[in-house]
C-alpha cells in the first residue's frame, strides 16, 4: 500500500511536469492551430542552456537566461515560419515544425554528445519522507512550482486581456480579428508562454531522479504529446488531467515492473502511448476535446 501511494505521489509529480509541457502544446494549438513537434527540442534547448550557463551565471541567472532563450527560440519559430504559413493545412504546419525540430535537435545532440550535463539545483537530490512516502526534493519543488504556474496560467487565461483575446481567437479567428484582436500577437505570445512553460519543465525534468541533461530527455519530453492528445488538444483542463494521468501511469508501470515483466523491461516508457491509444479508441477527440462536427 505504501509502495502504491509512493508511486502515485511520484507519478503525480512527474505528471505535473508533463502537464506544463502539455499546456504549451494546447495553447499553441489553440492560438495558431499548429501541433508543435518542435516542443521536445525546445525543452532540450532550455535544459541545455541552463546546464551550460550555470557555471558562469550561477543557478538563478542560468535559469532566467535559459527561460529567456527558450522563449526567444519559440518566438523566432512563430515569427519567421508559422506566422508566414497562416491558413495553411494542418499537416503542412505539423511537417514544418518537424523540420525545425530536426535542425534544433541535431545541433543539441551534437553539442551534448554522449555526455550527461549536470544542473546544480540548490535543492539537493536526496528524498524527503512525508508520512512514509518518499519523494525526491526536486520532484516536490517541481510539484509546487508547477501547481503555482498552472493556477497562474488558468487565472490569466480566464481574466487577463491576453487570455480573453486568446480564447476569442481560438473560438473563431476571423471574428476575433474583425473585433480588433491582433492574431499575430496572440499567436506569438502563445508560443512565448509555451516556450517558458517548456523551459520550467526542463529545469525539473533534468533533476533527480533523472541523472541530468542528456539526449534521452528529448524522449521524455515527447511523452507529453500523448498527454496533450488524450486530454483533448484544444482543452487546457484536458492537458492538466492528461499530464497527471500519463505521469501516474508511467510511474506505476515502472514501479510494478517486476509484476509486469511479461510485457518486457522498460515498459514504463511505452505506457503513455498505450494509454493514449486506449483513450482515443473510446473518445477520438480526447477526454475533453471538442467533438469535431461536420457541416456541409
Amino acid at each position: 500500500m505504501t509502495q502504491f501511494l509512493s508511486l502515485l505521489f511520484n507519478g503525480l509529480s512527474l505528471g505535473a511536469i508533463y502537464a506544463l509541457i502539455a499546456l504549451g502544446f494546447v495553447i499553441i494549438f489553440k492560438a495558431s492551430e499548429v501541433v508543435s513537434f518542435t516542443h521536445g527540442s525546445l525543452l532540450l534547448l532550455g535544459a541545455y542552456s541552463i546546464a551550460r550557463l550555470s557555471e558562469s551565471l550561477g543557478f538563478l541567472g542560468a535559469v532566467l537566461v535559459g527561460l529567456l532563450i527558450t522563449a526567444l527560440a519559440a518566438f523566432v519559430v512563430e515569427r519567421f515560419i508559422i506566422n508566414r504559413l497562416r491558413g495553411a493545412p494542418v499537416i503542412s504546419l505539423a511537417i514544418v515544425t518537424i523540420g525545425v525540430d530536426i535542425i534544433l535537435l541535431t545541433e543539441l545532440i551534437r553539442r551534448i554528445g554522449p555526455d550527461i550535463l549536470n544542473v546544480p539545483h540548490p535543492w539537493a537530490g536526496e528524498s524527503v519522507r512525508i508520512g512514509g512516502i518518499g519523494i525526491t526534493q526536486n520532484r516536490l519543488v517541481a510539484m509546487i512550482v508547477a501547481g503555482i504556474l498552472i493556477v497562474l496560467f488558468f487565472v490569466a487565461f480566464k481574466y487577463s486581456s491576453w487570455g480573453v483575446a486568446m480564447r476569442a481567437s481560438a473560438e473563431d479567428g476571423e471574428t476575433a480579428a474583425l473585433m480588433g484582436i491582433r492574431q499575430g500577437r496572440v499567436s506569438a505570445l502563445a508560443w512565448v508562454v509555451a516556450g517558458v512553460l517548456a523551459g520550467v519543465a526542463a529545469l525539473f525534468l533534468v533533476g533527480s531522479p533523472t541523472p541530468g541533461v542528456s539526449s534521452a530527455v528529448y524522449a521524455t519530453a515527447l511523452r507529453a504529446l500523448p498527454a496533450a492528445i488524450l486530454g483533448g488538444l484544444d482543452s487546457t483542463g484536458g492537458a492538466l488531467v492528461g499530464g497527471l494521468l500519463i505521469g501516474v501511469a508511467e510511474s506505476l508501470a515502472a514501479g510494478y515492473q517486476e509484476q509486469l515483466l511479461f510485457l518486457g523491461r522498460g515498459f514504463g516508457e511505452v505506457v503513455p502511448y498505450v494509454v493514449m491509444i486506449a483513450v482515443l479508441l473510446v473518445r477520438p477527440s480526447g477526454l475533453f476535446g471538442t467533438k469535431e462536427l461536420t457541416r456541409v
Binding site: 505539423a94 504529446l225 510485457l263 516508457e269 493514449m276 482515443l280
Partner: peptide, 25 residues
Amino acid sequence: RLRGIYLGVASLALVFIGVHVINTW
C-alpha cells in the same frame, strides 16, 4: 476514427511500441 492531427500523434505510438517489442521479443 481519428481526424487530422490526432492521427499523426496516435501513429507516433506505434513507433514507440514497435521499438519496445523489438527490444523485448
